[in-house]
């Protein structure tokens, strides 16, 4: 029941999200891609919980992830807003202040 199908699916979703995170140049879009990676991870988690017959634990863990993601989204979007307000830039390639 578990094993290949859902693992393949979540791995593919994670890779897709990672690709977007790495390449999208819009800060909000990057955040959206991070959400996809988080979703992929919790999907895998739930699948494992199902397989292990530990519904409550898996669900609780996934719930924790959901809340984490919500908090991350709130703070992340807040940061984006503040950055834009301060610098007028919302694109990743413009934000290179830590350049070495």
């Amino acid at each position: 029941m578990t094993g290949m199908p859902v693992t393949l699916l979540s791995a593919a979703l994670f890779g897709l999200g990672l690709y977007g995170t790495l390449t999208r140049r819009d800060l909000v879009a990057v955040l959206a891609c991070v959400e996809i990676m988080l979703g992929a991870a919790s999907l895998q988690l739930v699948a494992f919980a199902r397989a292990a017959n530990a519904l409550g634990n898996g669900e609780a863990l996934a719930l924790v992830l959901v809340v984490l993601a919500a908090a991350e989204a709130a703070v992340g979007l807040g940061l984006v807003l503040a950055t834009v307000k301060r610098t007028g830039k919302s694109r990743v390639e413009e934000l290179t202040e830590v350049s070495g």
């Binding site: 791995a11 890779g15 897709l16 990672l18």
Partner: peptide
């Protein structure tokens, strides 16, 4: 990198059996 990550994840978790 993304493809590699996906492949690595799939390979790692494929044989994983939760206790």
């Amino acid at each position: 990198v993304a493809a590699g990550m996906a492949a690595v994840l799939a390979l790692t978790l494929r044989d994983f059996r939760p206790p």
